[in-house]
Design a protein around this nucleic acid. Structure first.
Length: 461
RNA sequence: GCCCCCAUCGUCUAGUGGCCUAGGACACCACCCUUUCAAGGUGGCGGCACGGGUUCGAAUCCCGUUGGGGGUGCCA
């Protein structure tokens, strides 16, 4: 048997759907392991052709996931529209062979007839009228009697009665091919052997299989993966759900985490951990093991995966990954010394710079809601006064500063956890953040004292 | 309406007739640790939709019910 060829056929709509991303990953894993190829075919439309950035967006999104154009496994992108002549030619071949016929009924007429007869849909009105091609006439496929069995690698054999399949349109009245036709013709001409796609395509599969056979080819191996749903178990939609892969990328999710998480939707690696490297996925993933039921795309769990991946990075890797979100005014070497403290604290790469931004601005932005709680205690002014006095001359090292603040707090009858609060608020402007004394060490004596004095002044007497 | 798919903790899943007193992960809760927040550690909560079969034995096989989802255009 020759090398398998997998494909995805996304329609460019301005963003890449996370569900499409998962399907791509499934195909990619298989193609790589089996020494096959992975074909990207854009199901483009007139509108999309005027917007090359949409197609580029898909390519960029795939590249982010690690599905790269520089890998010989990858092929494409191809464009459906480039093959339009072949689609029409195939349709005409079917007409010549008597497997399709022309029909002059309009949509309104079909509806009227359906209403009159009480039977929904197109009733095969023009089947035997022997109409030739002509303006406004659509070419319909003559669905034969019988049944079609779709052999699905995930779902097993699914039987469809032809009675329930209409004589569907191949060419529109204007002569342009319809999606199903184009899809099959392209799959055939590109030598696709495996069609792994979303479950929503399963009901249309018998039509495609019929077309494969009518065109004289053995149908490919089918596999329909469960859809991704939202919290109300509806298919993820652009309108109400966060489905654009690009959005997660821009918010600072780690690509490897996204890849790993997406793979666990409908499939699970053996063992007690779901956090597994791609190499493991590539070696272990089997379509036969894919779940049958829809999966909820859970951002909370994605976030948990992201934290794991961020924690596991080495420092340089982490700093490099954060770079796109680090503003100009941030000193990179200072950021790097703080980095290990951030890695256990941030959920996304974008949060890191923000968490230590107080180190790099003239004055920290004060969280006014948190201020009263941190500064309101009656011992707070006194503590600040003594800390200021002591910090003026104490050795400037984190552990020393810690002992100092805790000693002063202790003298006032305040526990270590509470004692640091006013200092933290004064210096960082917030009640939560990275470890305080390490931050002070990095900030330096002069700036720390300046901020402490400013805060003390704000409290007044 | 018709067709198709699906059904294990809140969520993602393991489970392919005895290993199941149904396992893990995320989330949640509690405690420990602790300079805030995290991280880490320990423990807890929580599920086979329902009803019939088949079988010595069913989460697992069959049938039905209910529930959910998808498809059904001269859309892609």
């Amino acid at each position: 048997m020759s090398a398998p060829r997998y494909r995805i056929a996304p329609s460019p709509t301005g963003f890449f759907h996370v569900g499409g991303a998962r399907t791509a990953l499934f195909n990619w894993a298989l193609a790589r392991r089996e020494g096959g190829t992975f074909v990207l075919r854009i199901e483009d439309t007139d509108e999309a052709r005027d917007r090359p950035e949409w197609t580029q967006g898909i390519i960029d999104a795939l590249a982010w996931l690690g599905i790269g154009a520089d890998d010989p496994t990858f092929e494409g992108p191809y464009f459906q529209s480039a093959n339009a002549d072949a689609h029409v030619a195939a349709a005409e071949r079917l007409y010549d062979a008597g497997l399709a016929y022309y029909c002059d009924l309009t949509g309104d007429e079909i509806q009227a007839r359906s209403k009159e007869s009480g039977k929904p849909g197109y009733g095969g009105w023009s089947r035997d009228r022997a109409l030739g091609p002509g303006p406004g006439r659509a070419l319909r496929f003559r669905v034969p009697e019988g049944t079609t069995v779709v052999r699905d690698l995930i779902r097993g054999d699914v039987t469809f009665d032809h009675d329930a399949i209409e004589d569907f349109v191949l060419l529109r009245g204007n002569g342009r091919p319809i999606f199903v036709l184009a899809n099959v013709v392209d799959d055939i001409s590109m030598g696709i052997t495996h069609v792994v796609r979303g479950e929503e395509h399963l009901p249309n599969t018998p039509k495609q299989q019929l077309l494969w056979q009518a065109l004289g080819h053995e149908p490919p191996v089918w596999a329909h993966v469960p859809v991704l749903v939202n919290e109300s178990r509806k298919k993820l939609s652009k309108r109400r759900d966060k489905v654009a892969l690009e959005q997660y990328r821009d918010e600072g999710f780690v690509a490897a985490a996204m890849v790993n998480y997406l793979m666990t939707l409908g499939w699970a690696p053996k063992g007690d951990t779901e956090i597994v490297p791609w190499a493991h996925v590539e070696a272990e993933f089997r379509l036969e093991d894919v779940t049958h039921s829809p999966a909820f795309f859970d951002i909370k769990k994605l976030t948990a995966f992201d934290k794991e991946y961020i924690k596991a990075m080495d420092v340089d890797e982490f700093v490099a990954a954060c770079t796109p979100w680090i503003p100009e005014h941030v000193d990179l070497s200072t950021f790097r010394t703080m980095a290990p403290l951030l890695q256990t604290r941030v959920a996304t790469l974008a949060e890191a710079a923000d968490m230590v931004d107080f180190l790099f601005v003239d004055d920290p932005t004060v969280d006014e809601d948190a201020w009263p709680k941190a500064m309101g205690a009656d011992w707070a002014p006194k503590l600040l006064d003594e800390v200021i006095a002591s910090f003026d001359s104490v050795e400037w090292a984190g552990p020393v500063l810690k002992d100092d603040v805790e000693r002063i707090g202790g003298d006032l009858g305040v526990k270590p956890g509470k004692a640091q609060a006013p200092v933290r608020m004064a210096v960082t402007g917030r009640s939560v953040g990275p470890p305080l004394y390490e931050s002070l060490e990095v900030l330096g004596r002069d700036e720390t004292l300046r901020r402490l004095r400013a805060a003390r002044e704000r409290i007044g007497v």
